[in-house]
């Protein structure tokens, strides 16, 4: 049904999008919490920094990543020397590019849902003896969970469709860094590529829909838990 190249593009896309989402989740949650509830110097700057990938051309983001995380880039060289982790021209680099691009969308959704949690409930929990960590895990997080799930989904969807930053940072190497969007792009550039391009397009739609349904189901379960039982 699928050629080996197509299959590897599908698998790679899933792997990249999943890792981009999972690895970003804790950082995104902390950033959202800081932006929603924190009072600190430089909050506006952090807010702007988080949103930067959303407003910058993806190619620019990809190029900055290449400069920073390439093997000779300051961060890339340091990471390779210290941890032996290389991001340049492999799937990890694709995941990094997708994570950076999905991050603002994730943080935005989570921040809104945390802000929507009644601060009075958190204060009530504090008077009952809960420290900040407990307040967050037992009150804020459960109540903001639908938004947290939505944020994760947005990040996953963005990662699945990410093109500009990925192709700039890690190129488009079949079997190594070629994801669904870059594969579809490649097929549209060669004669007779219409059919595989269409097949991969359908696969993309299928994965996106499945992710949407899953997150809706999760969010509904979380919400109904508050009323039922």
């Amino acid at each position: 049904m699928f050629t080996p190249d197509e299959l590897s593009a599908i698998q790679l896309s899933m792997k990249v999008a999943t890792w981009a989402t999972v690895a970003t989740l804790p950082i995104g949650l902390l950033t959202a919490l800081a932006l929603a509830r924190g009072k600190f110097y430089g909050k506006t700057l952090l807010d702007a920094l988080v949103h930067l990938p959303l407003v910058m051309p993806p190619v620019v983001t990809g190029y900055l990543l290449l400069l920073g995380f390439g093997r000779r880039g300051p961060l890339g060289a340091w990471l390779e020397d210290t941890f032996g982790v290389v991001f340049a021209f492999n799937w990890k680099g694709a995941a990094l590019a997708c994570a950076v691009m999905g991050f603002p969308l994730m943080v935005r959704a989570m921040r809104l849902s945390i802000e929507a949690v009644d601060h009075g409930l958190e204060r009530a929990a504090a008077t009952l003896g809960a420290n900040r960590m407990w307040v967050f895990t037992t009150v804020t997080l459960p109540l903001a969970l639908p938004g947290v799930i939505a944020g994760a989904l947005l990040c996953f969807a963005k990662a699945l469709g990410e093109f500009g930053a990925t192709i700039t940072f890690v190129s488009n190497i079949p079997g190594v860094t070629q994801t669904l969007p870059t594969a579809i792009f490649t097929y549209t550039q060669v004669p007779g590529g219409d059919e595989p391009a269409l097949r991969l397009t359908l696969v993309s739609i299928g994965i996106s829909l499945a992710a949407l349904v899953l997150s809706e189901w999760l969010a509904r379960r979380v919400r109904s838990r508050g009323v039922a039982r």
């Binding site: 009075g120 008077t127 003896g129 109540l143 838990r225």
Partner: peptide, 28 residues
């Protein structure tokens, strides 16, 4: 606040909506 050990009953009760009455009671 969490180390003062004071019971505060708010005007608007502020029960945790995602927890049952029992879970609310034993929260503290």
């Amino acid at each position: 606040s969490h180390r003062r050990r004071l019971g505060y009953v708010f005007q608007d009760s502020r029960l945790f909506p995602h927890l049952s009455v029992r879970q609310n009671l034993v929260y503290g």
